[in-house]
């Protein structure tokens, strides 16, 4: 746990200059940034959508996602994704 970039109390935010949106022409969620675009898979899209819409702690994000996905235990997946997103410079703390 200690190696993780985020913990239950951190409030993740999209990095400066990053924008999340749904792209009808691509039929997927995307992250837009200066002169670039990342197409997001389903899970990544759900997490980043929530982060872009709500300023809340990681614990609150996990609880909200769990509620939306029939109470599934998503904590590990969420933390793994947050680390990856942070190392890609998509997120700030």
């Amino acid at each position: 746990m200690s190696e993780r970039e985020f913990n239950d109390d951190t409030v993740p935010m999209l990095a400066q200059g990053y924008r999340f949106q749904w792209e009808p022409a691509q039929n997927c969620n995307v992250l837009l940034y200066p002169e670039g675009m990342v197409k997001l898979n389903g899970g990544a899209g759900e997490i980043l959508k929530l982060i872009s819409e709500k300023q809340q702690t990681v614990a609150e994000h996990i609880a909200e996602l769990a509620a939306a996905f029939n109470g599934a235990d998503l904590a590990d997946d969420v933390y793994r994704f947050l680390d990856e997103a942070y190392s890609n410079d998509w997120l700030r703390k």
Binding site: E35, G36, M37, K39
Partner: peptide, 21 residues
């Protein structure tokens, strides 16, 4: 470089129709 970042993200998905991104 600019389109590279778009292009590579698209490239991973594969079989894309050609779009003026």
């Amino acid at each position: 470089r600019a389109q590279g970042s778009i292009g590579s993200a698209i490239g991973k998905v594969g079989d894309q129709i050609r779009q003026p991104l």
